[in-house]
């Protein structure tokens, strides 16, 4: 009930928040007692996301939030089932990000694919060789260390992104970040919205996986 009470006032539903999930994530990650609750994502998080696409004076009934909670869990199970089947066919034990994206493609959510591929690509750049580690807790500690070490690289990445929105792909192409690379030498100077175009670049991610780099 704690996480639901803030939503009951509906005072100003239109105000968007930056990184709204952070506090809630900390609280809910420690909540393993309520099995019923564990079947769904927190209603507060769901409500905040829903408000992002509504006009300022739009309101959301609690019924609607609860229905979306159920829909999201169904979406996760639906996609996970498809990804799991693929892993079994290929005799792999671990479901990874590529499997999730493949399943989403197969199930008809084409619009999601291009953004997710870019997202996964950037995530892997950030996490480096930790991508396939099944121990999440251990990885979190390592993430913090990597974050500190890569602080300067973040700055360069951000600078690079001002000039070239596909900097993430550029990094993959060179297999390492190159903050000093001249703009006119970027192999992908334009934003590639076409899934086909991204598909050509996608196999490189596998190469990057194989040739894991220590930052």
């Amino acid at each position: 009930m704690t996480e639901e009470s803030p939503e009951e006032d509906h005072g100003s539903p239109g105000v968007a928040e930056t990184n709204p999930g952070s506090p809630s994530s900390k609280t809910n990650n420690n909540n393993n007692n309520n099995k019923e609750q564990d079947r769904f994502l927190p209603i507060a998080n769901v409500g905040r996301i829903m408000k992002k696409v509504l006009p300022g004076n739009g309101k959301i009934s609690k019924d609607a939030k609860e229905t979306v909670q159920e829909c999201v869990s169904e979406f996760i199970s639906f996609v996970t089932g498809e990804a799991s089947d693929k892993c079994q066919r290929e005799k792999r034990k671990t479901i990874n990000g590529d499997d999730i994206i493949w399943a989403i493609t197969t199930l008809g959510f084409e619009d999601y694919v291009a953004p997710l591929k870019v997202y996964l690509c950037k995530y892997r750049d950030t996490e480096g060789e930790k991508v396939n580690s099944p121990k999440q807790q251990q990885q979190r500690q390592q993430q913090q260390q990597i974050q500190q070490q890569n602080h300067h690289n973040y700055q360069f990445q951000e600078q690079d992104q001002n000039n070239n929105n596909m900097s993430c792909t550029s990094y993959i192409s060179h297999h390492h970040p190159s903050p000093f690379l001249p703009v006119d030498h970027q192999p992908f100077p334009n934003i590639a919205f076409s899934p086909k175009s991204l598909q050509k670049q996608f196999p490189q991610q596998h190469d990057n996986n194989i040739d894991s780099i220590h930052w």
Partner: peptide, 30 residues
């Protein structure tokens, strides 16, 4: 640029994924 703060809790997502008995191991990126 920040992959630590998510709109949705990763642990809960993982738990929902695990509800499927056929699911064995889940990489951190999933």
């Amino acid at each position: 640029t920040d992959f630590k703060n998510h709109s949705l809790p990763l642990a809960r997502i993982k738990k929902i994924m695990k509800a499927d008995e056929d699911v064995r191991m889940i990489s951190a990126e999933a």
